[in-house]
């Protein structure tokens, strides 16, 4: 890939017009085009799965080195199969394309929107803490809900279910575990009624390191089993 950044070699025969050089130039342009295409999902214009996994590894490394957290949002369209079944796959594709357009306009330039697969999308938010990422996910959710699509002349309200998780300086975190967490949160959003945002409250960490009432009572020598007031 770095070949492309190298200086064009001089024509060995020193002519003004060199068909060989022209050809090289054309090939280089084609090569750049293909490189861009290899990173992008043709339908939505979002980055593709391969780019997503690279970008995720890179953001994790940045967080590891700097301690600055990042976040990841996974979004899944609700009842997308019904759209495909009712209106056909062509319309299904149109829905995916339109949704991507709506979401793109609700993201910052530094955010990395990706199509994870099917009707599932992943957004990497570099240098973004969880609370801010939750707001972004909420914005994505609302923007879709507020923009009904017209399919076969009928207005269709589309919704999405979202999971938001933090990328923090944690030795045990892998790209796989982050995606897995986000996936679980999307499932939770689905089972809680769809069209909602679920997020990682670090409950697993809080559970293992937070001080529970049971411990607090013993520490302070208080007898009441739960909260003392009220």
């Amino acid at each position: 890939m770095n070949l492309l950044e190298e200086k064009q070699p001089d024509c060995p025969t020193d002519k003004n017009t060199c068909p060989l050089q022209d050809r090289i130039r054309r090939l280089e342009e084609k090569c750049k085009e293909l490189e861009a295409l290899s990173q992008v999902d043709a339908l939505t214009g979002f980055f593709n799965y391969r780019y997503l996994m690279n970008a995720l590894e890179q953001e994790m490394e940045r967080t590891r080195r700097t301690g600055v957290p990042a976040s990841l949002i996974m979004g899944d369209l609700d009842y997308f199969k019904r759209i495909n079944d009712t209106y056909g796959h062509e319309n299904g594709n149109l829905v995916l394309k339109t949704t991507a357009g709506i979401w793109r306009s609700n993201l910052r330039r530094i955010d990395i929107p990706c199509r994870y697969g099917g009707e599932e999308f992943v957004f990497i938010l570099p240098g973004t803490r969880l609370p801010q990422a939750i707001q972004t996910a909420e914005r994505l959710r609302r923007s879709l809900e507020k923009s009904p699509l017209s399919l076969d002349g009928k207005p269709i309200v589309l919704t999405g279910s979202f999971g938001v998780t933090g990328i923090v300086q944690d030795q045990d975190m892998t790209s796989g575990s982050i995606i897995e967490t986000a996936d679980q949160l999307v499932l939770r959003a689905k089972s809680n009624g769809r069209n909602r945002v679920c997020y990682d409250t670090y409950s697993s960490i809080a559970e293992s390191t937070g001080v529970r009432d049971e411990e607090k009572n013993l520490l302070l020598g208080t007898d009441r089993p739960t909260k003392q007031k009220r």
Partner: peptide, 12 residues
């Protein structure tokens, strides 16, 4: 009490 709880939280 807050010092006791915070000290324990740290140890935990």
């Amino acid at each position: 009490p807050t010092s006791i709880t915070d000290a324990y939280a740290l140890m935990k």
